[in-house]
Design a protein around this nucleic acid. Structure first.
Lengths: 344, 344
DNA sequence: GACTGGCACTCAGATCGACGGAGTGCCAGT
DNA sequence: ACTGGCACTCCGTCGATCTGAGTGCCAGTC
């Protein structure tokens, strides 16, 4: 209880155990450890340290007389205190940068990002679409698809386009629509999505009573489109083929993950609250909210133009993963995609 | 060589083998067969028939003294000649219909369709987005995102919205854009996507020489947007969690499938040429073009409003699948989604 | 000629026991 | 405080054995 953090050599042993276990996937014993790392002490000493680390809950043995594997708590300590920032190679940086530069629109940016992440980390990548709420209204358009169907298009400063279809019993009046359109435009252009609603809800009064039904419907839909910002519940995933590397126990680790990938709500909860794009959040094993994904870790961070954090991206993999590498990749990709967004 | 198709009882035996193997996943022997089906003959007789069927390549045994399993050729015969149309239950029909009715836009239709398919068949579902080429231009909008960036939006009669961003060295001129916009509109509205290009390529001549660069860029982008119809290479997949049911041999059957799911081009090739929505195409094992997916079958059909076939949808699963059920589900879903599209 | 009962044969998968080796904990010695 | 040595544990593997489902074939019956 006096001191919670083990002394230096024990930490070195823990680090060595994590590294070896991650790369070999097998419980690591004292002898193998001293052979592969320059610890400068004998196996017996390492054994004592291991016993202490086990006592404190950082490592565990699957069964008596097997090597040790890190516990979630062990990985946690490793990530918090033992991780040296592992910079990407220049080649990797160039690859990220040039691949993301090639994107033609927001959708493409997100697609490329998820692909890049999956490729770099060789894990399953998840990218949440940027939220609109901070962006402003750039344009509103009303288009009649046929006399009874009206398409409402909302274009935002982030280059995103939202659309809704309205149907009506009686045909839409073109003149009315033109009038409504211009009034909407002047009321709404340049406003933030969140604030614009106030300006148009009173608009109705300018119209003749017999038109108010139509106007009210359009206004309501527009407000709903602006406020009901569904984009923050949209996510894109990639690299599912990397699930093969999850582990041997198909039923217990891969299946729950596949099910989670179907449910975007689950994924968003996994990604968690967005943190500023400088800091990378790591959630290890039981630290994430789903019991079924007990052997799964999440590495995530926020991103967005400039210092705004509009959404979250990250990767998901087995607790036994390369944390330094994943964290570096996630951070780098977030940084680059943020820069791209800022340029828009 | 004289007659290629076995006599009636042999066919009954084959059907029984396929059905039993699909439901039990285990090689089926002569004794078990006569117990579970009313064949009216003894195991010994069935054995003779089996020997004949094996001779002709419809079934095979994994090893001597094991039961038989159907070959691809066996499944093929089963699908071609032994499949009774298995209508969906009224409850299923209602479920499909009401679930699809609830869709708010085209995107939502496709999402719901893929979900429905996956749920009904308990397989991996694939839905190709409907192509635009037959639809007409409903609206074109030019929006300046900032002085040097212009957003071009194309709205089609199918309710689909395409967008492109143009950047320019020098700021866009608002007056010019307004002029260009109205000329574009009158030239293009109501035209088919494929035909509209001709009308606007000559438009440039109406503008002053110093503006021609800008105009040319916008026109070129618009034409590209209309003709480079990327929607036909977009697909949506769902039900990947059903991959768990693929088989025990993870590495050889699930991994290639996961990889295929990452590559939309591969999926499109799997779905194959669209057939009219009445007929369902079944590709069994080696009949589909990918070596790695030798134990995978595809059940697909075309769909689209009315009798137009705009795209393909279907399911992918292990060769050992419930063909009658899958075919019925695919056909029914295609029919319903076609109807929904026709109403738009 | 078509079907059946019987029989010998095959072979994958399960069961069992022995064994080797990696790894541990502990203790006495430096 | 570290190390070498030693006895002990126990998983995984290997080989031998056994069992049972399934087969092919043959002689007999309708």
């Amino acid at each position: 209880m006096a001191e919670r953090v083990p002394d230096d050599r024990k930490l070195a042993v823990l680090r060595a155990i994590v590294e070896d276990y991650v790369s070999t996937r097998e419980p690591v014993g004292s002898k193998a450890l001293v052979e592969r790392h320059q610890l400068g002490v004998s196996p017996a000493t390492v054994r004592n340290d291991m016993a202490a680390l086990e006592e404190e809950g950082f490592i565990a043995q699957p069964h008596t007389s097997a090597g040790r594997i890190p516990t979630d708590k062990g990985y946690r300590l490793f990530v918090d205190r033992l991780t040296a920032v592992k910079p990407l190679t220049p080649a990797e940086k160039r690859a990220i940068s040039s691949f993301l530069e090639g994107a033609v629109d927001l959708d493409d940016v997100v697609h490329r990002t998820v692909r890049m992440l999956a490729q770099l980390t060789r894990q399953v990548a998840i990218v949440q679409y940027p939220t609109l709420s901070r962006s402003t209204v750039r344009h509103v358009e009303l288009v009649t698809l046929n006399p009874n169907r009206l398409l409402l298009v909302l274009i935002t400063s982030s280059g995103r386009v939202e659309q809704r279809v309205l149907t009506s019993e009686e045909p839409f009046d073109d003149a009315l629509l033109a009038d409504l359109r211009s009034r909407l435009l002047s009321a709404v252009i340049g406003q933030r999505l969140g604030d614009a609603a106030a300006g148009i809800s009173t608009l109705m009064e300018a119209f003749a009573p017999e038109h108010r039904n139509t106007v009210a419907a359009v206004v309501a839909t527009l407000i709903e489109t602006m406020s009901d910002d569904r984009s923050d519940e949209r996510v894109l995933i990639g690299g599912t083929a990397n699930l093969t590397r999850f582990g041997d126990d198909f039923e217990r680790s891969v299946k729950p993950m596949l099910e989670a990938l179907e449910e975007h709500v689950v994924l968003l909860k996994l990604l968690g609250e967005a943190t500023s794009s400088g800091t990378v959040t790591v959630r290890i094993g039981h630290e994430q909210p789903y019991e079924e994904l007990a052997t799964t870790s999440v590495v995530a961070t926020g991103y967005g133009p400039g210092d705004d954090v509009l959404a979250t991206l990250g990767i998901v993999g087995p607790t036994r993963m390369d944390y330094p590498g994943s964290m570096a990749a996630v951070r780098a990709v977030a940084r680059y995609v943020s820069r791209i967004l800022a340029e828009s």
